[in-house]
């Protein structure tokens, strides 16, 4: 999992990291290079991407909004992505 601050400067992302200490890497995107191709996006927005080499093979999940239960969110992502929890895939 990674986090991207759309429109956020390096300073703002650092402040966020210091305040909330999320257990995953954060990146700033002041120029909104990532969101530039996504019109009408609301935050937070979560994407599930299937990667192949360094390219996106498939976007299997894309929803905006806060999820109240992290465990339930991970379960749902596991299901949407086709990952079998506890399996060897």
């Amino acid at each position: 999992m990674i986090g991207i601050g759309i429109g956020n400067s390096q300073y703002e992302v650092r402040l966020f990291r210091e305040k909330y200490a999320p257990p995953f890497p954060l990146f700033d995107d002041r120029s909104s290079a990532v969101a530039g191709s996504l019109s009408g996006i609301y935050t937070p927005h979560h994407f599930g991407l299937k990667m192949e080499d360094s390219s996106i093979r498939e976007i299997f999940y894309s929803e905006s909004g806060v999820f109240p239960d992290a465990e339930a969110f991970l379960e749902m992502i596991a299901e949407e992505s086709g990952i079998q929890r506890g399996g060897n895939s």
Binding site: I4, G5, I6, G7, A35, Y42, I83
Partner: peptide, 24 residues
């Protein structure tokens, strides 16, 4: 298993942004 499969997987936007990312 999940972590490996999630490599480069999700992005959770922080504070919002320029013209197209107000709060949900």
């Amino acid at each position: 298993t999940i972590r490996a499969a999630f490599l480069g997987l999700v992005f959770a936007v922080l504070v919002g942004t320029a013209a197209h990312a107000a709060s949900d």
